[in-house]
Structure formats: C-alpha cells, structure tokens
Write a protein that binds this DNA or RNA. Structure first.
Lengths: 347, 347
DNA sequence: GTTTAGCACTCGAGAAGGTTGAGTGCTAAA
DNA sequence: TTTAGCACTCAACCTTCTCGAGTGCTAAAC
C-alpha cells in the first residue's frame, strides 16, 4: 500500500521539477535532472504506478506527469525537507521588520509586506482574536459638540478608535464623566463578558452626574459598539498583483476570480480562523487546492501559522500561492516571520 | 484648420462606437449605427482626412479606425455631452453614501467604493491637504508605561492617531500635563506654522511640572511628529481587480504594470495633486493616456475632481480607467459623488 | 521478480498554406 | 462635393501537415 523508497524519490523529484518549471515532467527529463540509477523505462513504470495510485496526473496521453492534490499532500506530509532559511534571507526579513513597532497593526502590516516580498506570493496577516483579552482603557474625547472619539485599549496592546455621534448638548465634562465611569467599571473585564448590560451597570454604579436614562443609554450604546468593534478581525494582505506574473494566472479570468474572493476580508479572515481551529496543534497549517473550502481560490494553496501575543495563542499569518508553490521554502519563511512577531509581542 | 460639422460628428460617432465595442470602427459600421445622410464613401473620405489631421489611427491597412489621444482630447474638450445622471444611478450612489459619516476617512472610503462600483473602473479618493487647517486638539493617552497614544484633531474634522514610545518612568500625570500644555499653546495654530520650536515654546510657556530639558524634548519631538504625520495624504483606492475584465488588460503584463504603479500610494497621491495644481480652476481634470506623466499607466486615462471641506478647496477624488473610457458618464458620476461629499463636509 | 532496450503509438504545438470578409483608397461619373 | 464601383490589403480563422516529447507494451536480460 505504501510507497517504496524509489517511488517516493520519484514523486519528490516530480514535484520539485514541476514546481520549478510549471511544465509536465517526463521520464527522460527526470533522468537528466536527477541521478536515478535506473533507466527511464523503469521510471516510466513507477510513474504509471504512481498515477494508478492517484499521486500523479497526466494532462494528456503524450505529455509528462504533474502532481495531483494527493501527490502534493504526500509531498508536504512526508517528502519535503523544511530547512532553515539562508542567513541572507533571514537578514533581508529582519531588515524589513527590524525596527520595533509600537502597535500590533503596524507590525502586522510590515510583516505582511515582508512576507509577500520574500515569497513572491500573496501574504496575509490577521489581527489577534481578542475574546480572551480584557479592556484596559476606554476614553471618550469630545472632538466637537455631538462628535466623540472613543478610544478602546485592550490588554493585548491593541488600540482601536471609532468616531461616534451623541446628542449635541452634552458637555465635555458630562462625556468625560461617563467615560470615566464606564472605564472604571469595565477595566479588567474580559471582552466576552462585556455586554450592553454590564456597560450600563458600570456606568450607573460609578456615575456622579445625573442624566436622563434614555440619554445616558444612547451614549452607552455607542461606547458598547466601539468596544465590540475593537474585537473585529482585521486582515492585512499584500502581494496580490504578483500573482499575475505566474503562468497559472495568465488567464485573467482566474486572476479576477481570485481577487474577487480576496477582496472580501471577512471571508478570508473567517477561513483562516476555521483552518486554525481544525489544525490547532500544528506548527503550520496547509490546505492544498481542493482542500480549500473557499470559493474562487481554484488552483491555490494556503499555508498559515499562528503567532502569539504575550505567550498566548493569538492571530494568524499566512501565504496564498499557486498549488505549485515552493512549500518548504515558504514554510520556513513564514516560520521565520512568525518568530519575529512572537519576539516583538513577547510581553 | 478646424473641423467642419460633419467631421466632428464622425469623430464623435467613432469615439462613441469604439468606447462601446473596443473594436476598430469602419465606415460601413458607422453608417449602420448612426444616421448620417451621406454614403460610406463620403465617410471614408472624412475618416482619411481625420487620420491625416491626427485624430484617428489605423491599427492596420484593412481595419477600421480608432481614436488617437488627440482624438479623445478633442472629444472630451468639445464633442461629448456631459449630461445628468439618471435618477436610478443617482439613487444607487446615494444609497451607498446615504448614511452620514462621522469621519472623513470613512466617508472617503465609502465614496471610493461607490465610485468604483458605479463606474466599473478604478476609483481613488485622497484625503484633504491640510496645510490651511489648524490644530484643535492634542491628547496623549498613556496606554502602558512607555507607550503613549497621541491623538491629533484638526480643524477639518480630521482625526489621526499614532502610537509613540517615551521613557518608561514618566507618569500618567506628567504626560497629561505635557499634553495639556502643548494643546493649550498650539490649538488654533495653522499646521504650517507648527514646528519643533513652536511646540517647545508652547510646552514651556504652559508647563507646570519640571522635567529635565532633554527628557521633555524627547516627548515633544514625538508629539511634533504625530502632528506632522497627520498632514500626510492618504489614498483610498478601489476596484482595481475590475480592470482585469477589460480587453485592454487581458494581457497580464500590462495589468501587472498598472497594479505595480498603483501600489505606490504616494506616487498616485502626488500625481493627483500635481494635476489639481495645473488645472486648479476647472470643474474636473482629465489626463488622457500619454498626457499622464506617471509611469506604468500606459493606455489609461485619468479623471479627477476636487471636493471641499467647509467650503474651502480640499482633497481630490477620481477615476482611472482605460483610455477607452465612458468619459461623459464617468464625469457625471464623479461630479455626483463630489457633490455628495461636499454636502456632508459642508460645515 | 525487476530492469531494460526497443518499438509502435498518441497527441499537442507549431508551421504552412488557403480562404474569408471587413475594410480601405482611388477613380470616374453624377 | 458626393457617390458607386472596383481592385486591393491583411488580420483572423481554418485546415493540414510535420515534429517530437512522451507514453505503454513486449520480450529479452539480469
């Protein structure tokens, strides 16, 4: 049932060659480029066998073989060698991420850019899932009468802000008092426990000014929305246009389909998260072509990994490339970037 | 020298047809689709003449004619009729922009999305140039020891924030005092007059705590940077991937060149601004193909217009499309969106 | 049993040639 | 100045042909 050693080598060689050239690989080419100690006829037999077993495919009778999804899967599971990044490459990435960032958002943006640059594929970075984090600060700054900037600071160092409208006649002092009351009542509370009710309770317990309930509730609702919104997953994506130079996307229809899907940040973030749930324990997650349950990504593969904030599992970064991707290289690149992120978010 | 009436009609008809079909227009097709009261032979003579004058081009001898850059220029300058948007279209745009926005950033983002949707081309919206506006608020919120969020509020209703690092041992009170001092000293001051020196003066005139100069200056420098950074032009772009469905970009090389250029926000913003400087007085600015002095936009045209904040000239919105663009329609769409923006930013 | 040489076969890619038809310019008459 | 008529051009398309990389199968060799 399993593959004997030579078959494994053959499959590996075919994947390597096909990844490099995007051309079906024939038995002769295989002999030329690798030093198998057997003849092409023998390889032909092996290849026919591999095809029968589902690891290879033939575009047409008189062409070479290309790996099937199953072939790629076998390759990433047991054949490829993930080795360390060359010093040179490590240095390049470090250069792009070298300076320290004061905000997760900028760090992720830079990481995404670096990853796209380095891999040549599409990179993505998703902000941490914040359900396990708690509120540390809430400030409401009156920008002008009726307009308030709500700044929400969460434990993981995430800062978000949102402009909201409130009744015109509320004074700066009143707003500040509400803001202080809510902050006092909620700071330290896990995001998951914050609801409209807890917000209201916090305000009323700590409030020193008297305001009609309806009015107060309106302001509190805005504060609540701002807090909840801080929990949204943001996605940073980069390198999309590089895909156009790949032969598999020389057909603009396909490229368009891909871009269409990718323009829905929510879909992508959701899918990344879903994958992370499924493969939670693994160092990195891989989805090959048909394994991707997200429409429009035909012919693509997906590699993601999880970075940590303050030691706890948090967000994801990853790469979307063609099925014919340099898996081992990309994995080591992603790992390296993840390590750099972890380093910066250590405490 | 000038064009007689029929020649004008012929040119107009050719542009219209070519825009619609992206196929070279022949004399017969012209007769079929428009009711010229002359024969195709006559049109042939006119077309030959128009070609001699530089308004038309012929891809090859036995093909129809397509408009040259000069032809498009003549078309937009004096032939096309810019008419009002259909009620239907106006309604669609209004729907997308209908709700009021509390922040310029979100408004522009929505405007850009609506414009891209509506035109089917690439839209862009550039934040206002803020040199003529002044600082109204500056708040420094201590997020954790050593990390401060600087919130800058400008007169045009623009709010920006930036996380900065300061020495660890500064207390919340000290930061608040510096922040208050700077705000007090600078609020109402035009951005153009704010410099490291004015920031320092403001702080020292109003400061109540004593801090070593070197330390204070470090914090002030960060505040200054945050203020200056609020002046950066941001660009919101949308609809890029739609270009892939146009026949002129079925060649992925070209699409890639375009996307490459557009990924440099700074370049685009700078160019938009440059165009606005040149054509300042006009209701809308048009650059056709070769007229665009920005590399990588071969075959594209550019239509922009200027929106106002509080009655003063401010930022720009626009559309990038193929040279073969529905100029008159796009112009009316841009105008409509501009009006909607002006409306929201009236005061 | 495994490997190999040999051979007939397959089939896409690309070149060569032919046809079609939309479009032209020119001329001569209206 | 306009028009009909006609010869001419040339990309696009189709068909046909050749080429060669690659295959599977068989029978001999190891």
């Amino acid at each position: 049932m399993g593959l004997d050693n030579r078959k494994k080598e053959v499959l590996q060689a075919i994947v390597d060659d096909y990844v490099a050239t995007c051309e079906p690989v024939g038995s002769k080419a295989l002999i030329d480029r690798h030093d198998f100690m057997v003849s092409s006829a023998t390889l032909r037999n092996d290849m026919a066998e591999l095809e029968r077993m589902g690891y290879l495919e033939q575009p047409h009778t008189s062409a070479g073989r290309i790996p099937s999804d199953k072939g790629y899967r076998e390759y990433v599971n047991s054949l490829m060698k993930v080795d360390h990044l060359s010093d040179e490459e490590g240095r390049e990435i470090k250069e792009k991420l070298g300076k320290s960032f004061d905000e997760i958002a900028s760090l992720l943006k830079a990481a995404s850019a670096a990853l796209a640059d380095q891999t040549g594929y599409i990179s993505l970075a998703v902000t941490p899932k914040l359900t396990s984090s708690y509120l540390t600060q809430l400030k409401m700054l009156m920008i002008e009468p009726g307009k308030v900037l709500v700044v929400v600071v969460l434990s993981a160092g995430v800062v978000k802000n949102r402009m909201v409208r409130i009744p015109d006649f509320l004074t700066q002092e009143q707003v500040a008092q509400i803001s202080n009351a809510v902050e006092q009542g909620l700071s330290g509370m896990p995001l998951s426990e914050i609801s409209l009710i807890t917000v209201a309770t916090a305000a009323k317990d700590n409030q020193k000014v008297e305001l009609p309930d309806a009015l107060l509730n309106q302001v509190l609702y805005e504060a609540y929305t701002a807090i909840k919104q801080a929990d949204n997953l943001d996605v940073y994506m980069d390198g999309k246009h590089r895909m156009l130079s790949l032969p598999e996307f020389s057909d603009t229809k396909r490229a368009q389909g891909l871009f269409d899907t990718l323009s829905h940040d929510g879909l992508v973030a959701g899918y990344v998260d879903e994958v992370a749930q499924q493969d939670g324990k693994k160092e990195y997650m891989i989805r090959i072509c048909q394994e991707i349950t997200l429409e429009g990504l035909d012919g693509c593969s997906f590699i993601t990994t999880t970075y940590n904030v303050g030691g706890k599992v948090a967000g994801n970064i990853g790469v979307i490339g063609p099925k014919r991707m340099e898996y081992s290289k990309v994995i080591s690149q992603i790992n390296f970037v993840r390590m750099m992120i972890d380093e910066q978010l250590k405490q």
